[in-house]
Design a protein around this nucleic acid. Structure first.
Lengths: 337, 337
DNA sequence: TTGAAAGCGCTAACAT
DNA sequence: ATGTTAGCGCTTTCAA
């Protein structure tokens, strides 16, 4: 495909002064026509807006921000942008931000605290607030960030910072109730990354719930929350003679399922498998995965909403919100052997 | 006095002047220490950087951009941020941008040309370039955007604009060769959105390839490229007595698979099903899906790379790049009935 | 090598 | 109702 017209430099964008000159008014009048339309003569305004449209003028958000200190932009940082789990959060946040007339920028921290911190530093002055999903940052760092920017955490909590978290206490209880009622007397947890806050909550909840049923619980791992860790985790579970395993998340659970099939171990007949997240994929794998669903879209939306109050209404109260979870029973769990 | 109003005002960020004052130098020296370190005395620079670190100073990207006209930021716009297909593109782009020291912001166009245009307008002045993945914008609009911003398209092509596209000619040929060799004499294509450029390329390629084999081809649809359209598409295929169907993408294909199972139609014994994208999920569904894999990560990375040349090196030639595709044969295709 | 000064595009006093 | 002026934080001449 041959180049149409070798463009050397991008066309220069029209500025407020261009519009002002062309329309024969002062720059401030143009400014007002856009940001304070009531305070300018209807006739003048129409003329100005007409000229602006003609010139393809768009207010430069950067110049605007420089003056006001507000960018009308939020950043959402997630540990793994390719993980379908976060797709829900992203989607919910994106939708809420758009509805509120705000721009959302997305950052991928690659499960690394260092990358996350770097992104926060870099984006900090350019955004009005952060949604940090499953943040890997230590508590004190989180509070430091919250001094300069509005911050809302998703599935992470620390004193003095707003957050939206899933109700893991109830969720883990649901999982264990389910397994207990199927006759399982012991539980093997295949754990995720040690820094994972949600991982810790899940483990704590499972322990508490198991105790209520006098079930024995153990935890293996840590395993990385990926398909690739499935074989190691599955093999360990088999070696331990587990009848029921609960995996850190669905990604790991699906990896486990796949490995068990390779090894000819029937699920759920010989072993029950459950996960967390109900991500896309949990319903289409075989056997379909029993898993704890979170309202990820709601989490993203609520986080943006809280952030808006924090950033623009100067609300001090760090809102925290607990979202319900629900167990989706599918085919991967069944009666104990 | 009203009761103490809980009010959190974010701590003010240190500016270049703060650093200058504290360090006892001029603002310009601080500026140089950051952006032109060679042109300042080593000793002075160390001192300045020390003070800056102490004050937690970070150059304000917005003020910087205002002056230079460069934001060092690219925007990546995708039609559906929750579609695992784009996760690869996002990941590749994100990685390449980070490696090049650039910030990437992500936008979701929700499959809507209007939303896409709005995002382009809004983000335009704030970024140095756009990667538009599977853009829904009409050709002339695309060229207009390219006048003001560097633009690289992914899986879309139009005269005068850089792009990275998958080799659908070869890819569709691979699909049809595969089906023909299994004895299929006709092909039913379950099409996607009419505005989809890749959909059109796929359909064109399938037609050409089918002709080479003297196979009969028909196309049904359009169907939305989602799980939810699976039942409608599957039922139509069954009613038409198809032995082999090729779906617009994996999402649709998995929906079709699920519906066929519901209806007790064996895949691939009674009907073969193939998709496009090899997204996450294609390998874990049952039966595992035969699909055309694209190098989505590479696509994202290449797009960013081209964009960098366009935006910062003032390269005139709109580079275009064709990436290979490869057929991944799994369990959903088999011998014709 | 460093400092002073002039903007970048825009908004918000303050004048008129 | 509109124009004038003074910055926002930073970079970049231009002098010193």
């Amino acid at each position: 495909m041959p180049p149409e017209q070798p463009r050397v430099s991008p066309r220069k964008r029209a500025t407020i002064t261009d519009v002002a000159r062309t329309a024969g008014v002062a720059a401030s009048t143009v400014s007002r026509s856009f940001s304070n339309p009531d305070r300018v003569n209807v006739h003048t305004r129409d003329h100005v807006l007409g000229v602006a449209a003609e010139l393809g003028y768009t207010p430069n958000p950067m110049a605007r921000a420089l003056e006001s200190g507000r960018t009308n932009t939020f950043a959402l940082l997630v540990p793994d942008i390719t993980n379908p789990y976060f797709a829900g959060v992203i989607n919910g946040a994106e939708q809420a931000a758009t509805a509120a007339g705000r721009t959302l920028v997305l950052g991928n921290t690659r499960e690394s605290a260092a990358t996350e911190e770097q992104l926060v530093r870099r984006l900090g002055p350019a955004v009005d607030g952060f949604v940090l999903a499953a943040s890997r940052l230590p508590d004190d760092e989180l509070r430091r960030v919250a001094e300069f920017n509005a911050v809302t955490l998703v599935n992470r909590a620390t004193r003095g910072v707003s957050c939206v978290v899933a109700d893991y206490a109830s969720g883990t209880r649901q999982i264990v109730d389910h397994l207990a009622s199927l006759g399982h007397r012991s539980l093997l947890v295949l754990g995720g990354p040690p820094e994972s806050w949600s991982g810790a909550r899940r483990w704590a909840g499972l322990q508490d719930a198991a105790e209520l049923h006098n079930m024995q619980v153990r935890r293996f791992g840590p395993y990385s929350p990926t398909l690739g860790s499935g074989p190691a985790a599955a093999d360990a579970a088999v070696a331990a003679g587990a009848t029921a395993v609960v995996c850190h998340n669905d990604m790991l659970a699906i990896g486990v399922l796949r490995r068990l099939r390779e090894r000819g171990i029937a699920v759920p007949e010989q072993m029950s498998v459950a996960g967390f997240d109900d991500m896309f994929g949990a319903s289409i794998c075989t056997p379909a995965l029993t898993t704890l669903a979170e309202r990820t879209e709601d989490a993203g939306a609520h986080a943006i909403e809280i952030l808006g109050r924090l950033a623009y209404e100067r609300v001090a109260e760090p809102g925290s919100r607990v979202l319900p979870t629900q167990l989706v029973v599918r085919e991967s769990t069944g009666h104990a052997v």
